[in-house]
């Protein structure tokens, strides 16, 4: 990494660390910052498999929910400390990732087929969570509020912000490593042309299972953090398709397969969402104005895709001559 890039990264980190102080302790701003960082972190977990390795998933909520449920069940039903339950949840996410990866990649699923099978897995997990006794089914699971750092609960939202910042920075570092390491290079080769990668002697099956496990582990870490912040999960919250879509969106809007794509995507989407929602609330004169906000949100989404086909990161990559529009793959 060049000196300037290093400096820039350090500066950015300092700015992010100081951000909560800039707004005079506004919890709204802190909470918004948390949401952006959290979405960026989840988006990065998607990006690692979907962007860097080209294994697009529609069902990443399966990992998110696994993490949320694993730590919550250990904590609520078995009295574990959430800090201890967290690594177990991460391991569970990795295991589910490895499991789904082994099954799907063994069957040779690629592209849309792989995306659809992840969607189906998430749906199967949602129905299971709704039906089996140890998740308390549709009743959901409530975590007792006991704000104390030792319980991974904080009275002041600023600590969740910093926790999300740490996770986000770690995920950025991981993404950066993927652009530098041999592992990352193998993934890129798989993304560009899997058959060619295999011909080069890459064990594509093993690499893909690994990357899905890694992605699942990260995403599950997010699930635990979510449960600890909001203190309640149910099958639709944990395994719902909304979560999967959001992870995919922030990544692809920002630019899939780039280091900063998910962060930018999360920033852009939350910015648009907050502003449009604010407008909806500020227009009581128009009866039923709130849907207008989401209409504007949807239109902006289409426009971003239409005019920044590489995602927002494409804004400053476009100057480099890139092969464009390879047609329908």
């Amino acid at each position: 990494m060049s000196r300037t890039a290093l400096l820039a990264c350090g500066g950015g980190l300092i700015a992010a660390a100081l951000y909560p102080l800039l707004f005079g302790g506004s919890n709204y701003a802190v909470n918004l910052g948390f949401l952006v960082l959290f979405a960026a972190f989840l988006g990065q977990s998607w990006n690692i498999a979907g962007g860097f390795a080209g294994q697009m998933s529609f069902g990443h909520a399966v990992f998110f929910g696994t993490g949320a449920y694993a730590s919550t069940i250990l904590h609520v039903s078995h009295g574990w400390n959430p800090w201890l339950a967290w690594p177990v949840a991460i391991a569970a996410g990795a295991a589910v990732g490895a499991g789904i990866g082994t099954l799907s990649f063994r069957a040779g699923l690629r592209g849309s087929y792989f995306a659809l099978v992840t969607l189906a897995f998430a749906e199967a997990f949602r129905i299971l969570a709704n039906s089996v006794p140890f998740t308390r089914g549709g009743l959901g699971m409530l975590i007792k509020s006991d704000p104390h750092p030792a319980n991974l609960q904080f009275r002041d939202p600023i600590w969740f912000y910093y926790l999300a910042l740490v996770l986000c920075v770690l995920s950025l570092a991981l993404a950066w490593w993927l652009t530098r390491s041999r592992f990352g290079a193998r993934l890129a080769a798989i993304r560009e042309n899997e058959d060619a990668a295999r011909a080069l002697g890459i064990n594509t099956f093993r690499e893909k299972v690994r990357v899905l496990a890694l992605s699942g582990a990260l995403c599950a870490a997010g699930g635990t953090l979510y449960a600890q912040k909001y203190l309640y999960i149910d099958p639709s919250i944990a395994f719902g398709v909304d979560k999967s879509i959001e992870m995919l969106l922030v990544s692809m809007i920002g630019g899939a397969g780039t280091i900063f794509g998910p962060l930018i995507g999360a920033g852009v989407l939350h910015f648009v969402s907050e502003v449009t929602r604010e407008l909806g609330g500020a227009l009581p004169a128009i009866k039923n104005a709130q849907p207008l906000a989401l209409i504007v949100y949807g239109v902006i989404l289409v426009i971003i895709v239409g005019y920044l086909p590489d995602g927002s990161m494409g804004l400053f990559r476009r100057r480099r001559a890139l092969p464009q529009g390879q047609g329908h793959a």
Binding site: M1, S2, T4, A5, L6, A8, C9, G11, G12, F52, W176, T179, R180, A188, R191, G257, T258, I259, F260, L263, I264, S312, M313, L315, F316, R317, R320, L322
Partner: peptide, 14 residues
């Protein structure tokens, strides 16, 4: 393409 490095502009947007 997938190794954009960490340019100053990239960071600024980030």
């Amino acid at each position: 393409d997938h190794r954009p490095g960490v340019t100053r502009r990239a960071f600024a947007i980030g």
